[in-house]
Write a protein that binds this DNA or RNA. Structure first.
Length: 670
DNA sequence: CAGTGAGCGAGCTTCCGCTTGACTT
């Protein structure tokens, strides 16, 4: 009897597909990539060890030929697959339908020594029909797409292994740089610098309670035709007013309050316009991480760990995806849940469809959603704790994505009291739509959702109360782990499978710390960022990845040759940049301490001011380095006792060894 | 004479992306 070996990436998927294909097929998983460039010196095959380029794993002097090895952890699975190939008549390479999956298929061919009798099988949905059809409609491997993946791999290797040593020589041993992590680090550094450079400006906000029966709050917009200043009117770098808006003094604000309390207001104009809000899209990895962060206070790593459990338990579809699209079966299932819960009118007559917005989205998988043709209600799953909470979020989000828009009326009232103009925006809901099931978690905005009375133009309303609050323009907020993921996704940096690990790399290198769920960059992070900005400006350009992706697309289409691209990128580009890079310690100014800089000496981060130096505690947040703290440090005193910042729980990665070098660096002189 | 410790030098670190379990804490 003839057998066909089908190789997919994920074991859970293998199990399911085995059930759909039945006897005659053996379905196994590769567990992701099975070959890679040598990662450490010990992995370099002996025959290349003496080559000048061996450390890179890529022959940069001969058409960028890579050295591929089977890493120790993958030897077992390769051996098992080899054994199965011997007894199979045919091999279907059913790895994911994206660039990486195509490459894995080709690596399988090479590692398993396949000469013929292999085909590429692809599918976007795991249903019996889709799988059986896919097994019938195979195709050859797309070698151009494999070339694009290989180019991506080589670029990341050359950049990472090319630039990291500059950091060892200039700052400290064991540090790292790369296309993705350095883009993330620079984004964090820019935000931290903006925070430190921010000069907040005081301004007054004056509000009045208006109306008898259903009082509402209106805000003073202007006086005698001159607009009152709001945060947007100030230059964040100087705190100076940059427009002709009016900034009240405390006295004027008080006078305004007295003035308002003494007379009624007239309705100058009313505007009532309908508005609507669409439901959120079904979850991708990135949006799941963001919402789980807001609603459940999970960090991205926790979200992925819990989602993995749900996936393995058959409760949800695959959790590493960049596509918000739902299969037909999922769309029907979601609509059925909505109709059962809220009636026939709960869903639009035409089902909603979703497509990825990101340019480099590969859409190899569906959105993250409850599995199956019929969604199990959360209370019938038997799940508890975090798994139940995350499943519930996924369930509601998926069903909500198929429900009606929220619709209502948005009312804008403009009022006046003498020369004082006030304004208020209110909203009423006519059709709650999807919000019956799912509401985005967001803070504040309560005034925006006030219900306003129906008042005609020219009407007079009493003022119940008025008050003035002194406000300060806020500094830009720090990223959370999840909001950094969103920012990276927006510029196409990183992939669903790597978002959580990018954060752990930054943490393990000592570039960031998570403090009260906020992602703060350390002084070491600022130093590395400053060094890269001057030595390797192209690497930290936010557009770098987008440009790379455009070239990779051309390679995949056959319009650009792999070698031509790599030569331009490396031999005529980065190789020169790296050779010319200055190898000396960077230093960054301390905005809160004039004349002071933070720099590195002997691999240790130090503060220097007027010839005196002191080592900086690793957990000191840059924002907290004030003149007082600096004086204490330089006097040899331990500054204010801060609660030990708990290191975020991060996955153990191959690169975990950096923690050792950091703790040795942390040691202070006796 | 054997054991200890300071000091020195050599060797290694490092990327991104695809998957799980096998490890510790």
């Amino acid at each position: 009897m003839s057998t066909t070996l089908v190789i997919v990436e994920s074991p859970s998927k293998a199990k399911k597909i085995q059930g759909y294909l039945g006897s005659g097929y053996t379905v196994r998983a590769s567990l992701g990539h099975i070959r890679d460039l040598p990662s450490t010196k010990a992995e370099i095959p002996e025959k290349y060890a003496s080559e000048a380029w061996a450390r890179l794993g890529v022959n940069v002097s001969d058409s960028f030929k890579p050295i591929y090895i089977v890493p120790a952890g993958k030897k077992k699975v390769v051996a098992e697959l080899r054994a199965l190939v011997k007894t199979a008549d045919r091999v279907l390479l059913a790895t994911d339908p994206d660039r990486e999956g195509e490459a894995i298929a080709w690596h399988l061919v090479a590692a398993l020594g396949l000469k013929s009798g292999f085909e590429r099988m692809t599918f976007h949905e795991i249903t019996k029909e889709a799988i059986q059809a896919a097994a019938q409609h195979t195709r050859p491997i797309d070698y151009a797409l494999v070339g694009a993946q290989e180019s991506r791999r080589i670029i990341d290797r050359l950049l990472g292994y090319g630039v990291s040593p500059l950091l060892w020589n200039s700052i400290s041993s064991g540090l790292s740089a790369g296309r993705v992590q350095s883009a993330a680090l620079v984004a964090l550094a820019h935000r931290e610098q903006a925070r430190m450079a921010h000069v907040s400006a005081p301004y007054w906000r004056v509000t009045a309670q208006i109306g008898d029966k259903k009082p509402f709050t209106a805000t003073v917009l202007g006086v005698s035709g001159q607009r009152l200043a709001t945060p947007k009117d100030f230059d964040p770098a100087t705190g100076q007013l940059k427009t002709d808006a009016l900034v009240l003094t405390a006295e004027q604000a008080g006078q305004l309050v007295t003035f308002l309390k003494a007379r009624p207001v007239t309705v100058l104009s009313t505007e009532c316009v309908p508005y609507s809000t669409k439901p959120p899209t079904p979850f991708t990895t990135s949006t799941l991480q963001q919402e789980a962060s807001k609603a459940l206070k999970f960090n991205p790593k926790q979200s992925m760990d819990v989602a993995q459990k749900l996936y393995e338990g058959g409760h949800i579809t695959y959790m590493r995806t960049d596509s918000p699209s739902l299969s037909d079966e999922a769309t029907s299932a979601a609509r059925a849940v909505a109709v059962a819960a809220f009636g026939l009118g709960a869903v639009p007559s035409v089902p909603r469809t979703y497509a990825a917005k990101a340019k480099n989205a590969q859409e190899a998988h569906e959105a993250i959603r409850p599995s199956g043709k019929v969604f199990k209600a959360p209370e019938t799953t038997g799940l508890t704790g975090d798994e139940r909470a995350l499943y519930d979020l996924i369930y509601r989000r998926t069903v909500a994505s198929q429900m009606l828009d929220l619709t209502g009326m948005k009312t804008t009232l403009i009022l006046k009291a003498g020369a004082v103009q006030l304004g208020v925006i209110g909203r009423t809901v006519t059709e709650p739509g999807f919000t019956q099931l799912y509401q985005d978690v967001q803070e504040g905005d309560s005034e925006e959702s006030q219900v306003l009375p129906d008042v005609p133009q020219g009407a007079t309303l009493p003022v119940k109360d008025a008050k003035a609050e002194e406000k300060k323009t806020p500094a830009p907020g720090r990223f959370t782990e999840a909001s950094l993921v969103r920012a990276l996704e927006k510029v196409g940096v990183g992939r669903p499978s790597t978002y959580a690990s990018i954060l752990s790399t930054l943490d393990h290198r000592g570039y960031t710390r998570v403090v009260k769920r906020q992602l703060t960059v350390t002084w070491l992070g600022l130093l590395v960022s400053a060094y890269l900005a001057q030595a390797c400006a192209d690497l930290v350009d936010v557009q770098f990845t987008a440009h790379m992706e455009a070239e990779l697309d051309q390679i995949a289409e056959g319009a650009l040759k792999r070698e031509a691209y790599l030569t331009r990128f490396w031999s005529e580009g980065f190789a020169r940049t790296i050779a010319q890079a200055p190898q000396r310690a960077p230093s960054v100014p301390v905005p809160r301490v004039p004349g002071a800089v933070v720099t590195v000496r002997g691999g240790e981060v130090i503060l220097a001011l007027e010839g005196r130096t002191a080592p900086l505690p690793v957990d000191l947040v840059p924002d907290d380095l004030t003149s007082e703290v600096a004086a204490d440090l330089l006097a040899g005193k331990v500054p204010l006792k801060r609660p030990a910042t708990k290191r975020s729980t991060t996955p153990r990665t191959k690169g975990d060894k950096a923690g050792v070098t950091r703790s040795s660096r942390k040691k202070t002189a006796p």
